[in-house]
């Protein structure tokens, strides 16, 4: 589906990385490994067409990504390392706004079970700003489930999570792969998640 060919990126005329090759087909998990500042986020941004690659090209479903951008955006969820839930609103409001804005086909019962597994069901009427960092991170994964898209692009999803949550993440990743979804995520270490491709930056 998604093919990255000989991608190189220069920022301020400094080469960040060169000749990255990557191909993602349904059911695959790709991990981007690298130290801080090795350009993991930059590569993810290039895949999302936010950055102009200096050399190389990216293809989506056989066409150049730029020509097929609308279809790509309809099939992708991106989670950055910031908390995107609105801090002034309660979890309930956040979920409602996401559900309507993404025109999600997830029903309320599914959301409730997801909330229960993430252990967030007691905080429904609490404002997001009062939650701890790990809990807001879990809320991000709830968005992942609600958007219900094919390709997940995750930037440092495993940082700041306890072991139970990492176990939960593994489960979620496997579920998604069995439903023909595919995942790219960046991390500086791999805590035993089954990956089909590993890219070292």
């Amino acid at each position: 589906m998604l093919i990255v060919k000989d991608l190189s990126i220069e920022r301020l005329e400094k080469r960040i990385f060169e000749n990255i090759n990557l191909s993602l087909s349904p059911g695959n998990i790709t991990i981007l490994k690298g130290k801080n500042g090795s350009g993991k986020t930059t590569l993810l941004k290039a895949i999302l067409n936010l950055l102009e690659p200096s050399f190389g090209s990216i293809y989506w479903k056989g066409k150049l990504l730029k020509k097929n951008l609308y279809d790509f955006y309809n099939n992708v969820t991106y989670i950055a390392d910031t908390t995107s839930s609105l801090r002034k609103l309660t979890i309930k409001d956040n979920i409602y706004i996401w559900k309507k804005f993404f025109i999600s086909n997830i029903n309320d019962a599914q959301i409730e079970t997801a909330l229960k597994t993430l252990k967030l069901d007691n905080y429904l009427n609490k404002k997001v700003g009062t939650l701890s960092f790990g809990e807001t991170k879990k809320l991000e994964f709830l968005r992942l489930i609600m958007e219900n898209k094919k390709v997940w692009i995750l930037d440092e999803p495993l940082s700041n999570l306890d072991e139970d949550s990492i176990e939960l993440m593994k489960q979620t990743f496997e579920d998604h792969c069995s439903k023909e979804g595919s995942i790219i995520f960046s991390s500086h270490q791999n805590p035993g998640i089954y990956v089909t491709e590993e890219i070292n930056l």
């Binding site: 999302l48 609308y70 955006y73 309809n74 969820t77 991106y78 609105l86 804005f101």
Partner: peptide, 13 residues
């Protein structure tokens, strides 16, 4: 911009 909602809205078309 800081909490990334701009990007999410952009990715939603």
């Amino acid at each position: 911009f800081e909490n990334g909602n701009l990007l999410i809205i952009h990715l939603n078309g």
